[in-house]
Amino acid sequence: MSALQWVFIIASLITVGAAVMMVASHRMMHAALWLAVALLGVAVIFVTLEASFFAVVQLLVYIGAILILIVFAIMLTQRSTEAGSRLNSLAWGAAGVAGVIWTALTYVFIRWVVSGTPMQELGASFDDVVLLGKALVDAEGFAVPFEVASVLLLAALIGAVYIAFERKGEGS
């Protein structure tokens, strides 16, 4: 077992453990903090895959923005800081569905990877970020998704402003 495999195993255990704790926490704030741990674990897994750009983007966007958004949303909810363990009546049904989906995905991935190719050793001069940049704006590449992404972000912004302000009469 090489060191890299050990790092992967530890990071995966931490990620899965944090995810379980997140679902099992009684207080929402604790759940948010466990989410932070899980996201850090995912960033470490990106590092083991030598995807540095995605590791830092994971830190920057998920932990730096989405997590903070979630924390603010939790704070917006009344009485969410209290401890409460009301289990949704549909919880067991949802768990069953999730289990089925998980089994199906695992089956698909096992069948896919076994006949797949091993990771290729990339040359020392391979600069992934430059290639990503060129691909993003290439007309035959991802130019249209690139522009559509900005429209999507615009829609999110307008939607949030609308929801927050058209209901201003009812108070914040």
Binding site: F53, V57, L60, V61, G64, A65, I66, I68, L69, F72, A73, L76, V129, V130, L131, L132, G133, K134, L136, V137, F146, A149, S150, L153, A156, L157, A160, V161, A164
Partner: peptide, 23 residues
């Protein structure tokens, strides 16, 4: 919440722009 959301949107936008800036 609105500030956090605006930050999220501009953060994602900057992240999409970084590869472009490198190239």
């Amino acid at each position: 919440y609105l500030f956090a959301l605006a930050f999220l949107i501009f953060d994602v936008e900057s992240v999409l722009l970084f590869p472009w800036a490198v190239a």
